[in-house]
């Protein structure tokens, strides 16, 4: 039985992210907006995918769905073998916590906390004990070159440093996918280069990355780029 099931299943264990005919419809007053129309693609382990497209193309909607911040209105979304469907807010929160590591354009660090405690946050919601949280956060900050800034507050760090803290935070709970939304959008070119360098290094170490960007130079660094326009995938390069 098991063999038959495995054969009939088109997804393999290597497929971390599978989108099958994904649609997303919003209601704005009396108006229905089709943000996504039948988007299908697969991201395998150790992939480095850039999703590009102009604003209003459905790029952000796609990012929200992949990040489990929202659920599709049609189609199947599978993350690391888990089908994301009919889940409530608490269950979605758990998937986000375990499977997704977010990197935002605005960094989104909590200003009241030190770099180390910011990195610890996902572990806090995962219920990891204090000692382990501290050690893991410290190790990752060390890895992104901020070992000496662990007790700094975000306001005491440069934009590039803040984004590196955010990357450490995205990595801390060993997620399946690192999901970055315009990660270099608020950075100068040198800091942007640093961040992209870290992404490449992570990819070489076996990490899976999905980067949403409108910046062609950022997209060019990925292994492949998906272009989205009017809610549909245009081409796969």
């Amino acid at each position: 039985m098991e063999v038959v099931l495995a054969e009939s299943d088109p997804t393999s264990a290597q497929d971390l992210l599978v989108l099958k005919d994904i649609g997303k419809r919003y209601q704005l007053g009396h108006l229905f907006v089709e943000a996504l129309r039948g988007v299908s693609f697969t991201v395998v382990a150790n992939d480095y995918v850039a999703i590009t497209g102009p604003s209003g193309s459905g790029k952000s909607t796609l990012m929200h769905l992949i990040g489990c911040l929202d659920v599709p209105t049609s189609g199947d979304l599978t993350i690391a073998g888990e089908l994301v469907r009919d889940l409530d807010q608490a269950e979605l929160a758990e998937i986000r916590n375990r499977r997704i590591g977010f990197v935002f354009q605005q960094f989104n660090l909590l200003r009241t906390m030190t770099a180390q405690r910011n990195v610890e946050l996902p572990l806090l919601y995962a219920g990891v004990p204090r000692k382990e949280r501290r050690d893991r956060a410290a190790a990752l900050l060390e890895r992104v070159g901020l070992g000496r800034h662990m007790n700094h507050h975000p306001m005491e760090l440069s934009g590039g440093q803040q984004q590196r803290v955010a990357i450490a935070r995205a990595l801390v709970n060993e997620p399946s996918i690192i999901l970055a939304d315009e990660p270099t959008g608020n950075l100068d070119s040198q800091s942007a280069e640093e961040v992209l360098g870290i992404f490449e290094e992570l990819n070489q170490l076996g990490r899976t990355l999905v980067v949403i960007t409108h910046d062609a130079t950022v997209a060019a660094r990925a292994s492949r780029a998906l272009h989205i326009r009017d809610g549909q995938l245009q081409e796969v390069s």
Partner: peptide, 16 residues
């Protein structure tokens, strides 16, 4: 609001 959104993105449940 932004902090709440971030905490939720990082895995905070509504009850948290």
């Amino acid at each position: 609001t932004r902090e709440i959104g971030l905490r939720k993105a990082l895995g905070a449940k509504p009850s948290d």
